[in-house]
């Protein structure tokens, strides 16, 4: 209870602030909607209202402000509107939608679950490629001095570079080879998760101290045995830390990779929402992506806890 109490308070406080913020944020839209519904609004046309400040509008129209939490296409949708949109675009769409299970017999391709799956599959494929190559390069770097001195500085520098900028180009270039769909996004995801894993893994493989390495040396252990019995086990905590960073980066990569080509996915959903002013759609996609990120990181955390426990590390 001592742990949950403060967190709950903070979350509730954020919710309360959010609801309060809805009033000034949505005042223009609320008043327009109320005017259409026949209520009396002072300045009585939208153009006059546009020239009045938000807060004086609120003071002049206190009775109509209750509509702030139910405006369509609000500048800031209220949390319950977003939850409703999430429900509509997942459960309702899948089951009762025009292309849902009741009407067409298959799952809808317009639901957030479908879009989320498009993004998730690219993220996971890209992450697997990126993390796999990252671990391999790290092993190479630790064992070859030439590789270490040539490649490692670039791997570190590359972390300060906004690699996402490459995303639109990768999509278009791969498209000109006839490659589209999942692979280009996975390439971006892989690229983004690659360098954090390399840097973290090199650190991990180097974490055994001189004493431990010397001990294996006195056992006459070769490079292979040293790697499997000492370096790899001691790199595990570092590996998982960088994997968590990597998977979050992968998800960002997949979302950004969906911006140039509008073929489904959470990124496409966000951009579509911003084109058509469907704010609830953007927020719902955002929360869906956030939930996915949290789940992915939690999943890696769970595997980490299991692995460390099996290895006998005290948590």
């Amino acid at each position: 209870m001592t742990k949950v109490g403060p967190i709950l308070t903070v979350v509730l406080a954020i919710m309360a602030l959010w609801y309060v913020a809805c009033i000034p944020m949505n005042v223009q839209e609320t008043l327009t909607a109320a005017e259409r519904a026949g209520a009396v609004v002072t300045p009585d046309n939208a153009r006059a209202r546009a020239e009045v400040g938000r807060f004086s509008l609120m003071l002049q129209n206190t009775e109509t402000l209750a509509g702030s939490w139910s405006v369509e296409r609000a500048r800031l949708p209220a949390p319950h509107q977003i939850v409703a949109e999430l429900w509509d675009s997942t459960w309702t769409e899948e089951v009762y939608g025009r292309r849902g299970i009741v009407n067409s017999g298959s799952l809808s391709n317009k639901s957030l679950i479908y879009h989320g799956w498009v993004t998730l599959s690219a993220t996971v494929v890209g992450f697997a490629i990126g993390a796999g190559l990252g671990v391999l390069l790290a092993v190479g770097i630790v064992h070859s001095k030439t590789m270490d001195m040539s490649v490692m500085p670039w791997a570190i520098v590359s972390q300060t570079i906004p690699i996402v900028a490459l995303a639109p180009m990768i999509i278009v270039v791969l498209y000109s080879f006839g490659i589209q769909g999942l692979i280009p996004k996975a390439v971006i995801s892989a690229y983004l998760s690659f360098f954090p894993v390399v840097v973290g893994m090199v650190k991990g493989l180097r974490s055994p101290d001189a004493m431990q390495l010397d001990l294996l040396h006195t056992y006459n252990a070769g490079q292979g045995a040293t790697f499997w019995k000492l370096r790899l086990p001691s790199s595990v905590p570092y590996l998982f830390t960088s994997l968590k960073v990597g998977i979050a980066a992968s998800l960002v990569g997949a979302i950004v990779g969906e911006l140039p080509v509008q073929r489904g996915g959470l990124g496409a959903r966000m951009l579509g929402g911003s084109y058509y002013g469907q704010t609830e759609q953007i927020w719902a996609a955002l929360f869906f992506a956030a939930g996915m990120a949290a789940l992915l990181v939690a999943l890696i955390g769970w595997v980490e806890a299991r692995t460390l426990k099996r290895m006998g590390v005290q948590a």
């Binding site: 500048r75 996402v164 968590k244 979050a248 998800l251 960002v252 979302i255 950004v256 959470l266 966000m270 951009l271 929402g273 911003s274 002013g277 704010t279 953007i282 927020w283 996609a285 955002l286 992506a289 956030a290 990120a293 949290a294 990181v297």
Partner: peptide, 15 residues
């Protein structure tokens, strides 16, 4: 801190 915060970009651009 672990969430894909770039996703707020369309909202903030609108605001």
């Amino acid at each position: 801190a672990a969430l894909p915060i770039v996703g707020t970009a369309p909202i903030l651009v609108m605001w």
